[in-house]
Design a protein around this nucleic acid. Structure first.
Length: 487
RNA sequence: GGCCCGUUGGUCAAGCGGUCAAGACGCGGCCCUCUCACGGCUGAAACAAGGGUUCGAUUCCCUUACGGGUCACCA
């Protein structure tokens, strides 16, 4: 049997990390078995509709490579794939259940229901519908219907026995039927509730594996009873533990947690995000951590799903993002970084590709770029303390004499390239009889004006060019002369 | 509160009756090195508690604690 899974988001305006992970797992469960992945938009709550939200869903799935086989924009055999376009059919299914004695009309007012709830004993939040309308005679029902009285249709739960269902990650779960409320299937406005539409649609779309968050675990017995009432085969259930912000709270946009779009904006690579969230709640049989989507499709196994919630760790994502950056080939990296680099470095005489090359091993997110390359455009104001480095065995005096020695030999260099600079400076070290660092550290410092820089003296000199390098070394000498003489 | 679920280092996690309880991130140290980074090596760090079952429990069962979920004419 072909596996069919579906991603059924409500269009709320952005992609939660948790939702994206659910979509990923749904995709992987299907694709790892050669099955189909379907997109269905659940927009029955008209009040919560957000402009452009559906496009955001398409966009995210396309960006992440989670290509669906059927969906609103590409069609398919079991459409329509937007729930609001399927509204006609649910009432008929609900009536079928009424005829089978598995559901019944209810004319209770919201006020009565409210009163019912409030009549509960102190501290007992649980209230079941009291089945006031279950005993209505067919004549009464017809009379109410004819008079246009608003009604809902409720599922009739068994009062005895238990219901057991199997979940792939949580195992067998059994509940007392007496615990189950006669939930509403059709609302007074004629729309189905989510619970009902979901079951009907999943069946009609031949979904074999229902994959969703563990918050649905407690309503699953009701779903199962619905399938039974219709005489339909229940799907395989796969409930997923939540993705948390900390030990107590789920990840939520409301609390400032980042959505998928936010992470991309902050310089995280789409591939890295997908890779990271795949590992939040799932682990492969070996120790592998770095996976392309294609590799995940190969490696994914439902057995690796975990039961307990996982906390989203931006530090590990950051590390993984760095791994992806380092693994890119130079051209692709430059492409990915070019626009940000041009924004950060305005001086067009500088070779951005060389700067990019220095950056690639040092970046964790693309947003680190400006901070790392600022000094190329303008030498920052800096203190001569920077020249003092214990491990390099430099003091301000040594730095001064090194810079003074370096100035004429560099100035005499006609062919300005990294190799030439390297050979010249190393020859100078030799003739001076000092340590490498005693010359190179001061030069690097003078060129960057920063305590750290991507690349060392030779690389920076090469990129900055002769004129600018010489100028910066002169500034260094001036600063140091002032500092040394005031000692 | 009822019901359901969960609990291995700070975090992600392997483990599925016998292990010195993996690995990764992060953190510390060392090496490499003209800084930083990369890379390499290395260290600290965990089975929530108590009862059973068993020759033997992280692993199976029960209880407790702590967390989470759910109890809508929302999804």
């Amino acid at each position: 049997m072909e596996i069919r899974t579906r991603f059924a988001p409500s269009p709320t305006g952005y992609m939660h990390i948790g939702n994206l992970r659910t979509a990923l797992y749904e995709y992987l469960i299907a694709k790892s078995q050669g099955g189909k992945f379907i997109l269905r938009i659940e927009d029955t709550d008209q009040e919560r509709l957000v402009e452009g939200a559906i496009d955001m869903i398409y966009n995210t799935l396309s960006l992440t490579g989670l290509h669906y086989d059927e969906g609103p924009d590409i069609g398919g055999e079991y459409g329509p794939y937007i729930q609001s376009q399927r509204m006609g059919m649910y009432m008929d299914y609900a009536k079928e259940l009424v005829e089978k004695g598995k559901a019944y009309y209810c004319f209770c007012s919201k006020e009565r229901l409210e009163a019912l709830k409030n009549s509960n004993k102190e501290g007992d939040a649980f209230s079941k519908y009291d089945r006031h309308c279950l005993t209505l005679s067919p004549e009464e029902i017809q009379k109410n219907l004819d008079s246009g009285m608003p009604f809902v249709i409720r599922q009739k739960m068994p009062t005895e026995g238990t219901t057991t269902f199997h979940d792939v990650v949580y195992g067998d779960i059994t509940v007392e039927n007496a615990e189950l409320d006669d939930q509403i299937l059709m609302k007074a406005d004629g729309f189905p509730t989510y619970n009902f539409a979901n079951v009907v649609d999943d069946h009609l779309m031949k979904i074999t594996h229902v994959v969703r968050g563990s918050e649905y675990l407690s309503s699953t017995p009701k779903y199962n009873l619905l399938y039974e009432a219709f005489g339909w085969e229940a799907p395989v259930y796969v409930h997923l533990p939540a993705v948390m912000r900390d030990a107590h709270n789920k990840l939520s946009k409301r609390h400032g947690d980042k959505s998928f779009e936010d992470l991309v904006k902050e310089g995280f690579l789409v591939e890295a995000i997908v890779n990271y969230i795949a590992l939040l709640g799932w682990s492969p049989s070996d120790n592998k951590e770095l996976f392309t989507l294609k590799e995940l499709e190969q490696a994914f196994d439902i057995q690796g799903l975990s039961k307990s919630p996982s906390i989203f760790d931006i530090k590990k994502l950051t590390w993984m993002n760095g791994e992806y950056i380092k693994a890119m080939d130079a051209d692709r990296f430059y492409e990915a970084v070019e626009s940000r680099l041009k924004e950060a470095v305005k001086n067009r005489t500088l070779d951005l590709k060389k700067i990019a090359a220095l950056l690639q091993k040092r970046l964790e997110t693309l947003n680190d770029i400006p901070r790392l390359v600022d000094f190329f455009d303008t030498l920052p104001e800096y203190s001569t303390e920077l020249y003092i480095h214990k491990k390099m065995k430099t003091t301000e005096e040594i730095a001064l004499s090194s810079l003074k020695a370096a100035l004429p030999v560099l100035d005499a260099l006609s062919d300005w390239n990294e190799t030439a600079i390297h050979d010249t400076l190393m020859a100078l070290v030799q003739s001076l009889g000092i340590k490498n660092g005693q010359l190179l550290w001061p030069v690097r410092t003078a060129l960057s004006g920063e305590p750290t820089s991507p690349g060392g003296a030779m690389e920076l000199a090469d990129i900055l060019g002769k004129q600018e390098s010489i100028a910066r070394i002169k500034i260094g000498i001036e600063k140091l002369e002032k500092a040394v003489s005031s000692l």
